[in-house]
C-alpha cells in the first residue's frame, strides 16, 4: 500500500459517500444517472468475485464490501425507493449502457493477462469501469443544472483513478516486474474521459460561478 493508492481509495470512498448522503438525506437523485450506477454495480460484482476466496487484507475486504454494498444500495434507492425514484429523470438518462458492456466483454476475452474466468471477468470490470461514467457525463450535459453534490461526486470519482495512476507509477519504480499495461491504459482512458469535466469544474471553482457544461 502506498500513499497514492490510499488517497485514491479514500477519494473513491468519499465519492460514494457523497452520493449516498445526497440520496439518503434529501431523498433525491436528480441529476444522477441510474445507468452509470448500474454499470458500477456490475463493475464491482465482476471485479470482486474472489472477495471470500482470495483474502488479501482486512482493509481490502472491508473496502470491497463497502463498494459492493454502496453501489447496489444506490441502484436499489433509485429503482425501488418510493420517494427517491420519483426524482429520477429517466427521459434524460437514455444512454444505451448495455451496449457498452458487449465491447468490453469481447475486448476482455481478447486482451487479458490470463485466459481464466476470473481474470477475464476482472479485465471486463476494468474496461467497463473506464466507460461507466459516460451515461452520467451525457446526463450532465443534457440537464446542465449540476448541483454541488453531483459535481463533487463526479469530480471525486474522476480524481480517484488519477491517484491510482500515480500509484501505478510508484509501484512500477518500487516493485520488480510490476508491469500491467492493460490496467494502465484502461485507467488512463478512464481519467481522460473526465478531462473536460475537470476543466469546467476547475473553471467554475476558480471564477466562483455555478458549474455549467457547454451543450
Amino acid at each position: 500500500m502506498n500513499i497514492f493508492r490510499l488517497a485514491g481509495d479514500m477519494t473513491h470512498l468519499f465519492s460514494v459517500l457523497v452520493l449516498l448522503l445526497k440520496i439518503h438525506t434529501i431523498k433525491s437523485c436528480a441529476g444522477i444517472s441510474l445507468k452509470t450506477q448500474e454499470l458500477y454495480a456490475i463493475v464491482f460484482a465482476t471485479r470482486y468475485l474472489d472477495i471470500f476466496t482470495n483474502y488479501i487484507s482486512l482493509y481490502n475486504t472491508i473496502m470491497k464490501l463497502i463498494f459492493l454494498g454502496s453501489s447496489f444500495s444506490i441502484v436499489w434507492y433509485m429503482r425501488r425507493h418510493k420517494i427517491v425514484r420519483r426524482s429520477y429523470d429517466k427521459d434524460q438518462d437514455t444512454f444505451r449502457h448495455y451496449f457498452l458492456m458487449l465491447p468490453c466483454l469481447i475486448l476482455a476475452l481478447i486482451i487479458n493477462e490470463k485466459f481464466t474466468f476470473r481474470e477475464v471477468m476482472w479485465t471486463f470490470s476494468l474496461y467497463l469501469e473506464a466507460v461507466a461514467i459516460l451515461p452520467q457525463l451525457v446526463l450532465l450535459q443534457r440537464t446542465r443544472n449540476i448541483d454541488n453534490l453531483t459535481g463533487q461526486y463526479v469530480f471525486l470519482l474522476g480524481a480517484y483513478r488519477a491517484f491510482y495512476i500515480l500509484n501505478w507509477i510508484y509501484r512500477y519504480f518500487t516493485e520488480e516486474h510490476f508491469v500491467h499495461w492493460i490496467t494502465w491504459i484502461s485507467g488512463l482512458v478512464q481519467t481522460l474521459l473526465y478531462a473536460d469535466f475537470f476543466y469546467y469544474y476547475f473553471q467554475s471553482w476558480k471564477n466562483n460561478v455555478k458549474l455549467e457544461l457547454p451543450a
Binding site: 493508492r5 488479501i56 481490502n60 490496467t183
Partner: peptide, 10 residues
C-alpha cells in the same frame, strides 16, 4: 522473483 500481481488493488 515474486511476480507481483495487480489483484491486491481495489
Amino acid at each position: 522473483k515474486v511476480i507481483v500481481n495487480i489483484h491486491d488493488e481495489l
